[in-house]
Each structure stands twice: as structure tokens, then as C-alpha cells.
Write a protein that binds this DNA or RNA. Sequence first.
RNA 1: GUGGUUGUAGCUCAGCUGGUUAGAGCGCUGGAUUGUGGUUCCAGAGGUCGCCGGUUCGAACCCGGUCUUCCACCCCA
Length: 458
Amino acid sequence: MAQKPSIPKGTRDFTPSEVVKRNYIFDIVKKHFQTFGFQPIETPSFENSDTLMGKYGDEGDRLIFKILNSGDFLRKVDDNLYNSKDSNKITSSISEKALRYDLTVPFARYVVMHQNELDFPFKRYQIQPVWRADRPQKGRFREFYQCDADVVGSDSLLQEVELIQLYDTVFTDLKLDGVTIKLNNRKILAGIAEVIGAKDVLIDFTVALDKLDKIGEEGVKKEMLSKGISEHAIAKASPLFNLSGSNADQLERLEELLKDSEEGSKGISELRFIMETITSLGLQSAKLVIDVTLARGLNYYTGAIFEVAAPEGVSMGSIGGGGRYDDLTGIFGLKDVSGVGISFGLDRIYLVLEELELFPEAIDRSLDVLFLNFGPKEGLAALKLTTVLRKQGIKADLYPSDAKLNKQFKYANNRNVPYVVLLGEEELGNSSFIVKNMKSGEQQTYGLEETQKFIDSL
RNA sequence: GUGGUUGUAGCUCAGCUGGUUAGAGCGCUGGAUUGUGGUUCCAGAGGUCGCCGGUUCGAACCCGGUCUUCCACCCCA
């Protein structure tokens, strides 16, 4: 009575073909992280709860997977607390570890703990799974990988410029042309809130503004009103709702709007520097645009905000994002360390590449040559040849049993093997082997002494 | 966390207002073909109808719960 096995909600098995394709993306991302001078680190899959809790807001705390203490953990709970049935309070006394929720907070912890051995600016990349107790949707899982690259210890805007180039380089190498890198600056958002007199509700203001392309101008205004932002303030902000034209035009109009806000003006000049530097350097395939509605959820961004949108026509949310956070390590007691980073949404990039058929054609070819098995003696001769091929880096295998040729051929077919070698009794007798091209069906006979010639033809 | 949606063979899905042995295509196994796959023909195997309970003479179908899928919120990658 074996029960049917299953895996938890929001988790996945990866098939060989999926792993190969995911590694293709990983490898390209990693390669460019390295050419841009980033170094890899890894952190544990779980952290102390107090490292994570409270860093992502109430909503985030709810989504953190907590790990139950070991042993007879309930015995240690205070009776009053236990009877109160207050899950939030009891959690902290029965769970002191939690699964990593993202890579940024563990990285901040890492920087603080290793501050004396790090050379700043420290450029690190990290590709590891994270876990969220979220309700799954398409492209949203409870276990997924994040690929992050961050620089800490430099407040130079050249870092932002480099990160934009890094996005462009990676997506160009992935053959994913036409992605849009959206750029904004938290200081501009803060400046706008200041100018319209909504400074105290900055977060509600930005969250609403972020939804502009989803719920439209009226929807945003409605949400702002419901959050207590006055009609007067909304009217003042209304130029934002249809800010169009070239990047330079938008900058000019924003500058005018923000001329009375010191912070806003600083944001404008930062944005302008990044835009101008990128313009003079040029991008390979990505488009860089200003998008003042870009807010993103995480409130630790203090300067630049990035988001990468998939090429037009692909229905997929953002495939990457990031920004600058001036004081990330402050929560762990290390002041004045500025950081800026970006992240690649691996799972979504995978879905986009799949949809646009951008994976290399032969990517899931797991075998170049299959030797058919005609029996013990022939098999041994084939195994010798297999070894020769493998030594030269060719993916070769011998079918393990002398099953019917029909079956062996079918196996070769299903595994997409391009070449099948037949070395049977007759061939063994005259020291030869037959190579069959599975695509064209053509067969060619080689003498054993011509093995190298066969290898060279592959 | 809120509201909805989905689950039938390995896969994709039919299955009428509840009715007797639950079907198809693909895949799989065997044969036509004992040294030739991808095409064709023939035959065969494979199902706790997600799970638990209820209603009923009778449940894949109706009801409740639960798990899962996908979607919209919330939030976010």
C-alpha cells in the first residue's frame, strides 16, 4: 500500500533537460559577474531568526519559513504564553532559526561579521535558493533561486553605471534582445512627496504610484485618496501620470517640478549623471529608460532603483531588479556603508527564453555517440572504442545489454543521440565499425585504425 | 493572509440531468521485422476517478472537509 508521493506546494523537481538549461543561464550570469570583478560567497540556508525577522516588514515576517526548535520545545514555553494562543508571540519561543528569505540581508550580516577582512569596495555575487511561505502563482514559488551582485563600500555613481552595463552584457549574451532597463531614484520619489506635501505618507504614495501601468491613472488616484493623500496633493503630482517623451525631456520636466526640493534635485542630478554616462558608453542590446513610477517594494532603497522588463510581447513581469541602499548594514551596527546591487530573476528568465526559443539548439544533447551492444565480445570491443572517445571529451556510451536492435535504436532516438555505432560480429571479424547518422540515416564504415578520422568528423 | 479555480491512465484531455464492465490520442510493451530508430499496420498492459467523510438502492458526477493546481488581491522575484 505505497502512498502516492508528492512534493510541497510551490516546490519543483527539475528534469535533466531543465537543469541543463538552468545551468546555461547560471553559467552566463556567473561568467559576467566574474568579468566585472565580482567575487562569489555563500551563506547558510538558515539564519538566526532575529537576523531575518523585522527586516522585511510585517508582510515579510509572515512569509518567512520558521524552523521549529529541536527537542521538547513546548515544555519550555511559558504557560501563560501557551494559553494565550497568540501564534506570533509563541513563535519566537519555539523557533529561533528561519530559512533565508533573500540574499541581501544575509549579505549585510556577512559584511558586518567579516568587515575586518574585507577590502572595500567589496563586490560579491551569490547564487543560492531562498524560501518564502507565499502562495504560489505562475513564476512565483516557495523555493526559488536568486542571483545577486552587490557592491558595498562605495557611493560612486559609477557602480550604478556598471551594474546597468552588467545587465546589458548578460541579456545580450543570453540573446535576449530588447529588454528594457527602467531607472528611477528614491530621492526623486521623496522629493515629489515633499513638494506635494505628502512626505509623511511617502511609502503609500510610492506603492500607489508603482501600480500606474496596472490600474491606470484613475486607479492610482483612488488608492492615494484612500490612503489619506489630499486631492490638492494628487493634483500637484498629476504631471507624473503622463510623463512621456525622451529621457532628456522627462528629466527637464522633473527638474522643474522638483526645483524647491533639495533631495529631489539631488535625485535628478544622480539620474542625469547615470543617463549621460551610459549614453556616452553605449549599450549593446538593452534600452535604458526613466520611469518615475518605479518604486519596488523594499523600502531600504535610498538612491537608484532598477527594474528590467522582458522584451515587448512577452507576458512576464520584471526579470530583474535592484537599487542602492545607503545604510543596509546599519541594522547590524555598521554605519555608513553604502551598497548597490542587482538581482536576476532566474525562473522568469528561464520562462522567457523558453517562450522565445532562445536556448541553444543542442543544449540538451546528453550523448554524442551511442555504441549498440551486440553481445559480450562485441560489447568489449565497443567499450574500448568508447573509452578512446571519452578521453577526447566526446560524450559516448555503450548500451548496457544486447537487447534487440529495435529497442537500442529507439533508446538512441529518444535520447536525441546524433550518431550510433554498430560493431557486431561481422565488423569485429574485419576490424571495422559502422557509424549511422541518425538524422540523415546515412551509414559509413570505418576501419578500426581510422578511429581518429571518425572522431575528427564529429 | 483574502476571494475564486483545478484535480480522471506515464502525459494531454473526453466522460450528458447520479445508473451497471470509466474512454480517446500520445507514450509504453510485444509482434509484422532474430543487424537498423524516427513512418505504417496488428495486439497488449496500464486507473484507490487527489484524499477523508457524508447523502443515495446506486457517486468520477451531489454535499462537507482537506491537500494540490492555476488566477486575482496582499506582497514580491
